[in-house]
Each structure stands twice: as structure tokens, then as C-alpha cells.
Amino acid sequence: MRVNLEINGEQHTADDVWPGESLLYVLRERLGLPGAKNACEQGECGSCTVYLDGTPVCACLVAAGQAEGRSVRTVEGLGGEDRLDPVQDAFVRTGAVQCGFCTPGLVIAAHDLVHRNPHASDAEIREALAGNLCRCTGYEKILDAVRLAASTVAGERA
């Protein structure tokens, strides 16, 4: 089947989609957008997190056909060729990226949080990131990154 969807502001069409495949598969294997990562395919790790109509979801648990006509935003759509989004920048500055596999998913989850609630407490940050696993950093640097990103966003709003 054919799936039409908007990704990072542009219209895309994927052909020969098997109806049981996931949005994650469409993004990575059919449309050449490997930002969202595939690790568990069962919703446990969050490395495939993308925005679907503005809400963070596990792309591995969205059926391709469910994304028809919807709007998706992936990590590729946050910054630009030569510009990092403040959340990405905060991850780099605080050393929250080691192997980097978990980073795209965490960046989307963190991006969502700091825009919903730039004054999130540590408990709220942990809660917001509870669906994203990282095997390298031990999470402390990731918490630093989110605090930095949140203060940047709060500053931009003030």
C-alpha cells in the first residue's frame, strides 16, 4: 500500500508498504531517515521516539497506515544542516552523548518536556524520560542536558 505523510514539514510518499510494518520501518528503510533508532521494537527503549502530530510516541508501535495524512517530526527536523536545536546543543555541551544510540529518542522526549514545562523539577524530568533507556551515560549527564536545555528555553521565553 501507499502511505502519504508529512515529515519535518515536507510531504513524503512511501510505496509498497506492507500494512503490518511500523512507522519506524517506513522512516528508516523506505524514506532514508535513520535518525530514529531501532533497538527493541517493543516500546521498551524509546530510541525510536518521534513526534506524531506533536506528541512523542514510539515509532516502532505505530502501524505505517496509522500515520497516513499525519505529521511526523524526527530528530532530523529539530535543528538544521548547520544549526543545532538548543536541546541537541545542550546534550553535546554537557557530555550527555556517548555512543549516541539513545540520543535521538532522548532528544525528542527532552524537547517535548522543555517546551511543555521549561521549569520542570528533577522528578518531572525523570518521569518524562522514563521511557528512554541509555546504556552508557548513567543518566546524570542527560539530566544536566535537560536542565540546561530547559533554562535556555525558559530564557528565550522570558
Binding site: 516500546g43 524509546g46 506528541t55 508501535l61 518521569e127 521511557g131 528512554n132
Partner: peptide, 8 residues
């Protein structure tokens, strides 16, 4: 689950 699961 997690926020991503609860969102769907």
C-alpha cells in the same frame, strides 16, 4: 508504561 506508551 512510559509517556510514549501513555500517549498512544
Amino acid at each position: 508504561g512510559s509517556p510514549q506508551i501513555r500517549n498512544r
